[in-house]
Computed example of a mutant assay.
Amino acid sequence: MYKRQTHHFVQSALESQAAVVLLGPRQVGKTTLALDIASEQPSVYLDLERDADRQILTEPDLYLDEQAGKLVILDEVQQMPGLFKSLRGQIDQRRRAGFRAGQFLLLGSASNVLLQQSAESLAGRVRYIEMPPLQLTEVGADQLNALWLRGGFPDSFMASSDQASMDWRLDFLRTYLERDIPALGPRIPAATLRRFWTMLAHVQGGLLNAAALAEGLGVSGQTIGRYLDLLVDLMLVRRLQPWHENVGKRLVKSPKVYVRDSGVVHALLSIGTIEGLLGHPVVGGSWEGFCIEALLAAAPTGTEPFFYRTSAGAELDLVLRLPGGDIWAVEIKRTTAPKVSRGFYVGAEDIKASWKLLIYAGEHDVPVAEGVRAMPLEQGIGLLRAL
């Protein structure tokens, strides 16, 4: 077992907020974390994918009235959308009785659906926390290549061999496509969605070209948008938006698209070993996506991520606008040579970046030029976590 950093965030939130919504894709470790928290205090746990547990909440107020003073954990809460109004009443009733914080921990695997339901009913009563897969700081810097290859889903990362890890990820993909996504309502053929997901992996970190994807699948551009929205909503794909604040510059307006877990990228492309990965055309995009997810998981709450690209060739792989207003320009390269392109300097000047970093595959923090530092991923993560 790895001690998850999200554990501290959830505990801290429960000490000050009536309800906490913990979001993350399936199998990322939400239930394990919730049960760990439950073992530390009086609590009850219900899995709303189980008929028996849903039956308990047929009359939710009758049951929840009896649990006052306990932490109520509701797993896969999006399975019962009508429950949120009852939760609002329960929170307000308990506040009047003196129970102000730590009342409900809600776990969900579909972000926008869940957010809309809870935002309408629990405004001012809830905090949202997204749980990422295992992070480099949790498993140790010596495990970087294993984490990159296998991804951060705990069962994949901790598998007994690379082949066992690949088998787990292939089963994970099959379950999502054949059971989990249809359970949310969309009637999309599993084979079609798998092809779409694989096409995204092939162009990992590329600009979204909906027309090319539509032609490849034989569907409309509107359908491509619907497929992409679904995978983004399930926190399986990231749509990184372009920076758009430079007046007078001809900016790229299409988003960049990343399959969020590197292990899923490699499973979709049948890359099973680190040697196979290093020789594959997707290696640069895979490394870039892996680093972006790690940096965003470490960034302060409220950080806004973008990329920057102009028609003249200025380009920044990642732009972070931090809550205090600082802007970080980040270049990501799978190289041991700490050099950045002229396009990076131009882009950093355009956005008036206060920090300029190169995340590279070397081992040392070194100056590249005035105001620009190159450092390994672990150190970049440390900088953001220290903010």
Rank of each mutant, 00 (worst) to 15 (best):
L136P: 11
T137Y: 06
Q143C: 12
N145P: 00
E120M: 07
R127Y: 08
D142W: 04
G151H: 03
M158T: 13
N145A: 13
L144S: 02
P132F: 02
L122Y: 02
L136C: 12
A123S: 15
A159L: 04
Q143E: 14
V139G: 06
V126M: 09
V139Y: 07
A159M: 08
S121P: 00
A123Q: 13
P154I: 08
Q135K: 12
L136D: 12
S156C: 13
V126N: 01
M131W: 05
T137N: 14
P154C: 09
V139K: 03
S118D: 00
R125F: 05
G140Q: 05
L144Y: 05
E130Y: 11
E130V: 14
G152C: 09
L122M: 06
F153I: 14
L149N: 02
W148M: 12
R127S: 15
G140E: 07
A119W: 04
R127Q: 15
A146M: 11
D155S: 14
L144D: 03
G140D: 07
T137W: 14
L147K: 02
P132A: 11
W148V: 02
T137M: 11
G151M: 10
Q143W: 00
M131K: 02
A141C: 02
S121W: 02
S156R: 10
R125W: 11
M131P: 06
V126Q: 03
Q135V: 02
P133G: 15
G124H: 03
F153D: 03
W148P: 01
E138C: 01
V126K: 03
A123I: 12
S118I: 13
A119G: 15
M131I: 04
P132C: 00
S118L: 14
G140P: 04
Q143F: 01
I129Y: 10
V139F: 07
L136Y: 07
L147M: 12
Q143N: 13
L136M: 12
G151S: 12
L149E: 06
R150E: 10
A159G: 03
W148D: 01
Q143L: 01
L134G: 02
G140F: 05
T137D: 14
G124C: 04
S121T: 14
F153S: 08
V139H: 09
S118E: 10
W148G: 01
A123C: 12
F153V: 13
A123G: 11
F157T: 06
Y128A: 06
E130K: 15
Q143P: 00
A141G: 03
L134E: 02
N145T: 09
A123V: 13
L147C: 08
N145E: 15
R150P: 09
L122P: 03
P133M: 05
L134R: 00
D142T: 13
Y128D: 11
D142Q: 14
A141I: 12
S156E: 10
E138F: 01
D155C: 00
W148I: 03
M131N: 03
L134Y: 04
M158P: 00
V139I: 11
